Structure formats: C-alpha cells, structure tokens
Simulated assay, not measured.
Amino acid sequence: MNILDTLLWGVLPYVVMAVLVGGLIWRYKYDQFGWTTRSSQLYESRLLRIASPLFHFGILAVLAGHIMGLVIPKSWTEAVGLSQHAYHFLALSIGTVAGVGTLVGIVMLIVRRRRTGPVFMATTGNDKFMYVMLLGAILAGLATTVLAVFDPNTVDYRETVSPWFRSLWILQPDVGAMAAASTSFHVHVLWGMALFAIWPFTRLVHAFTAPLHYLFRPYIVYRTRGSSPRAGSAPVRRGWEPIGTHDRDSGRRRTRPPRERSGSTSVK
C-alpha cells in the first residue's frame, strides 16, 4: 500500500458518500421541481417502449447481482452448499445477460435521443455527460466480467473488492484488500464512484423517488348526478362531504318552498 491507495480506497469512498447524500438533500430542498426524469415520451414512444424497459429491468438485475456479490460473503454461499465454480457460473451467465440487456437498452436510448429531432433538441449537456458516464460504467462492468473468465491473472473479487466494500460500512476500510484487486476492478470501482458523485445533479436522481404512496391512495370517488336517492333504494353512505358554509346552507333550506304531496287536495 502507498499514499495513493489510501486516498483512493480509504478516503475517496467517504467523500463520494458525502457528496451523494449532501447532493440529494440540496436537490430536494432547492430543486424539487427539477427532481424528475424530464420524460420525452411525448416526442417519440415507439422506440422508447422497447428501450426503456430493457434498460431499467437490466439495470435492476445488475444491481441485484452487485448486491449479492459484494454484500454476501464467500463463506456464506459455501456454507449453504454453493461451490465456487457454481457461483461463478451463475454470476457469469446471469450477469452477462443482464449486462448485455442493459447495454442494448442504453444504446437504443442514445440512438433514439440522437436521431429524433425533438428529443435531441430537449437534450442538455448534463444529459449527454450522464449518458457517457452510464455507458462507461456498463462497459467497465462487462469488461471485468470478460477478463475474469479469460484472464487467469485476474484476482477473485470476492477476496478483494467484496471485503473492502463491506469494511467501508463499519468505518474500517480494508485498503490492502482493494489495492490487491486487479486493474480492471480498480477502473470499474473508480468509474462507479464518479457516477454516484454526479448522481444527485443529473436526471438520475429520480431513481431515489419511488412512488410508494400510490399503493395506499384512496379510491377515486365520483359524485352522482342526483342529490336524492331513488325510490325504494337503500340509503347510500356518502364518501364525500358537501362544500359550503353553514349560513349559506341554512339560507337555502329557509328559502326552499315546501314540497306538495302528489295527489293531495286542499279542503276549505
């Protein structure tokens, strides 16, 4: 280890965390109206209908694979009977499919944004930089997967990157473990940290806004045309309250003429 290793793997991760959390708080406090994806579906939807689900479902699968590889220790998978060979086979097969799907999805999104005139005109410099960072992170991840298979000198990330990642959360960064990782993992991790550092300041911020309140919204209540129930029908409990003031409602009741009974005659 040297000073550079200490700065990169012992100090920089906490700087990125501070920027990420602080940026999210700042964005939520001062730019709530900008906390959006700035959807361009209105301009073009045919290609977006394919590219967007492919990218989003692919990135969710990639995220799940990273969580499994970084959070779950190697001893745990071996304890449940999952051998190292079987684990790497599953990680390689599922990770490759998820990574390729994500790559195809983002390439389709970039092509759509470049070739569709209104969408390209609505693209800012911030969006272009975000796409470059996303594409670079995906390519770096796929490169580490390929090199881990064909390069025999690649060090197992479950013995280097994973222990380092878990050590960060107990505030005891294992700098030596990360320093011993292969160069491909160094590039992938540095690019990933750069992506998280710019995350709060791009449209990627919408990933932290899950519309969970949609699951608990009340049903939409429609008002009937008539104010009085039908003859012979059971009284229905209103799901809404009339809007008005007591003096106005009482004034209406006083000025309303009394109803005459049907078929009744007056006797003098």
Rank of each mutant, 00 (worst) to 15 (best):
M1D: 13
M1C: 10
M1G: 12
D5R: 00
D5H: 05
L12F: 08
V15S: 04
V16P: 00
M17T: 03
M17A: 07
V19W: 02
V21A: 10
G23Q: 02
L24M: 05
L24A: 00
I25T: 04
R27P: 00
D31R: 10
F33Y: 11
G34A: 08
T36A: 15
Y43L: 11
R46A: 15
R46E: 14
S52M: 12
S52P: 12
L54T: 03
F55R: 01
H56E: 10
H56W: 11
M68Q: 08
L70Y: 02
S75E: 13
W76P: 00
W76H: 10
E78C: 07
E78Y: 03
V80S: 03
G81A: 08
S83R: 01
A86N: 13
H88W: 09
S93C: 13
G95C: 01
G95E: 04
G95D: 02
V100H: 08
V104C: 07
M108E: 11
I110N: 08
I110D: 04
I110T: 14
I110G: 04
G117S: 14
P118A: 00
T123D: 06
T124V: 08
T124N: 06
G125E: 06
D127R: 11
M130I: 08
V132L: 14
M133L: 05
G136E: 11
A137I: 02
A137C: 13
L139M: 09
A140H: 02
G141Q: 03
G141H: 04
V146S: 02
V146R: 03
D151T: 07
N153K: 11
N153A: 13
T154G: 01
Y157C: 02
V161T: 05
V161G: 02
S167Y: 01
L168W: 03
Q172K: 14
V175C: 01
V175K: 01
A177Y: 01
M178L: 07
M178Y: 04
A180R: 05
T183C: 12
S184L: 05
V187G: 02
H188D: 09
V189N: 04
V189L: 09
G192E: 00
G192C: 03
A197S: 09
A197E: 04
P200T: 05
T202K: 01
L204A: 10
L212F: 15
H213A: 10
Y214H: 14
R217Y: 07
P218E: 08
P218T: 15
P218A: 13
Y219Q: 13
I220G: 11
I220L: 15
I220A: 15
Y222N: 15
S228E: 10
G232P: 04
A234K: 09
V236E: 09
R238A: 14
P242N: 05
P242V: 04
I243H: 11
I243E: 09
G244T: 07
H246R: 15
H246P: 07
R248V: 07
S250Q: 14
G251W: 06
R252L: 14
R253M: 10
R253W: 10
T255G: 11
R259M: 12
R261N: 11
S262Y: 12
S262N: 13
G263L: 08
V267E: 11
